[in-house]
């Protein structure tokens, strides 16, 4: 059973197909780098895979269940463009809230654990409003990972991160993968993503033009994928 399977997914905005006939299977434990130009449909696809958006046609299954089922939603973690935390609450309050939302038995200890893990334990009681950009990003990551999701969907997670933050995220993702979790991340940063990835997929104008294992050639020459499968 795939971790996530998109079957015949189309997404229309009006009459215009933003996604056309997407068929994608991601095995458990894989790390898929979703590549494509701006406007190709990466974010649209990620939102559909995460159950945030309903496909116009087709369906998405997460570990065999419909993506909008409660069970599936418990297993998914999302990290989008927005950091998804409340400005007026402290880091600890935010994490506690989301831990509770995901039904964790001990939200308080989970929250503290992740504050330590992301190096935010000293800023735990300050409101997020006062955080620097790097701190916000780390809190967002904590929020996405706190319920130990089996499927992680990350939309351009490396954007506007400094080197230290990028390294932290890469390490975290590597650990997550080592525990058998599945990761799908869309990105422009080919190098960082391809280092982590076991698989790659390319979207061009709403269509999946390539999906397969990540080869050594992709890693040494990241532009190769676009040249081979993109439309120039």
């Amino acid at each position: 059973m795939s971790a996530v399977a998109a079957e015949g997914v189309w997404k229309y905005f009006g009459d215009y197909p933003a996604l056309a006939n997407i068929n994608l299977q991601v095995e458990p434990g894989a790390c898929l780098a979703l590549l494509g130009r701006n406007g190709a449909g990466k974010t649209t696809l990620l939102r559909i895979l995460g159950g945030l958006s309903r496909p116009s046609r087709g369906r998405v299954l997460v570990f065999g269940d419909e993506v909008r089922n409660r069970r599936s939603r418990c297993r998914i973690g999302v990290l989008g463009h927005g950091i998804g935390v409340y400005e007026e609450f402290s880091a600890l309050e935010n994490l506690r809230l989301f831990a509770g939302l995901y039904g964790l038995a001990e939200p308080e200890s989970a929250a503290r654990r992740w504050l330590e893990r992301t190096g935010l334990e000293r800023a735990g009681s300050s409101p997020v409003r006062e955080f620097s950009r790097g701190m916000r990003q780390r809190l967002a990551v904590a929020r996405a990972f706190i319920h130990d999701p089996e499927l992680l969907l990350l939309d351009e997670p490396f954007t506007a991160l400094d080197d230290r933050a990028i390294a932290f995220l890469q390490q975290l993702l590597a650990e997550t993968r080592a525990r058998g979790r599945t990761v799908i991340l869309s990105t422009h940063q080919l190098r960082e993503a391809l280092e982590l990835a076991t698989h790659a997929a390319v979207i061009e104008r709403g269509r999946l033009v390539f999906a397969g294992e990540r080869t050594g050639q992709m890693l040494s020459d990241p532009g190769w994928l676009y040249r081979t499968y993109g439309e120039g």
């Binding site: 939102r47 939603r73 998914i76 989008g80 998804g84 409340y86 939302l101 929020r143």
Partner: peptide
């Protein structure tokens, strides 16, 4: 809406 919190709420198991 700030920070896309609504997206997180909708994707969570929240009814």
């Amino acid at each position: 809406l700030t920070n896309d919190c609504l997206d997180v709420l909708v994707s969570s198991p929240l009814d």
